[in-house]
């Protein structure tokens, strides 16, 4: 059974119609990518799934439970999210310890010490980081903390909203490897949103191309590699990601 089923999703913010009828299914253990440029509504789809944006029409089903306005505690334990900007997603006055202890306290876990230490080890941060503040960490380290915070509730599904686009290329590789390893170890389901086709091709088995709030087309990774895109917009996107020798394109 598909753990995530989005059908005919619309999201409106007042006058703005950000998502116009997007449908897709993600299977258990799959990694699914959503690609698009700014304003395509790709991040809004994620936010609608996790309840940070209103579902104006359509349905979102996670593990058989159709989501309404209120999300249950069980929902939060099943599904977590990593945000784009690691500088904005950690509370500036909370130590890493507090950041990781908070979800455990909310959901009433008891072996908090052990869980916090295990989470830090798992994302490759030493225990020496436990009592630091976010401003003492680099962007990559902060993103590792954000991943640890999402993982500490042992969710089945992770929503990744441009998790590496604010990072340097070399740090991006480390974070992508970390996400890859965690998925293999825990059998997680990912929905990854990115503007970078190469990142999505590396991380996801299937992907959805979005433009102006609508789905343009769905492709498999192999289809993308074989350049089997049907829609002109997807081809433009592919061409743009291939590198950009402007002299070649303008003779």
């Amino acid at each position: 059974m598909a753990p995530i089923d989005v059908s005919g999703l619309h999201v409106r913010f007042g006058e703005v119609h950000a998502v116009r009828g997007v449908s897709f299914r993600v299977a258990e253990g799959e990694s699914y990518g959503i690609v698009g440029e700014s304003g395509s509504g790709k991040s809004t789809v994620l936010r609608a799934i996790c309840g940070l944006a209103p579902i104006s029409a359509g349905a979102v089903t996670v593990a058989g439970e159709e989501l309404g306005r209120r999300r249950s505690a069980g929902f939060h334990r099943r599904l977590q999210m990593v945000f784009q900007d690691p500088y904005a997603s950690l509370h500036p006055r909370h130590t890493i310890d507090r950041v990781l202890a908070e979800p455990l306290a909310i959901h009433g876990f008891d072996d908090r010490e052990a869980r916090i230490l295990r989470a830090l080890d798992e994302v490759g941060l030493g225990r020496g980081f436990r009592f630091r503040y976010p401003h003492q960490l680099s962007g990559g380290q902060r993103q590792r903390v954000a991943i640890a915070r999402a993982l500490i509730l042992e969710p089945r599904v992770m929503l990744l909203d441009e998790p590496t686009s604010a990072l340097d290329a070399s740090i991006q590789a480390e974070v992508l490897n970390l996400l890859d390893r965690l998925r293999a170890e825990r059998g997680l389901t990912y929905i990854l949103v990115s503007h970078d086709l190469a990142v999505v091709a590396h991380m996801c088995e299937r992907l959805l191309v979005m433009q102006h709030g609508q789905a343009v087309e769905e492709l498999t990774r192999d289809g993308l590699r074989a350049r089997a895109a049907r829609e002109p917009y997807t081809r433009d996107l592919l061409a743009a990601s291939e590198g950009s020798r402007p002299a070649e394109s303008s003779p």
Binding site: C50, G51, L52, R71, A73, H76, R77, Q80, M81, F83, Q84, D85, A88, S89, L90, H91, P92, E102, P103, I106, H107, A146, R149, L153
Partner: peptide, 10 residues
Amino acid sequence: DFINAARLQG
């Protein structure tokens, strides 16, 4: 986002 993250944790 850090408030959103807290909301997401319930």
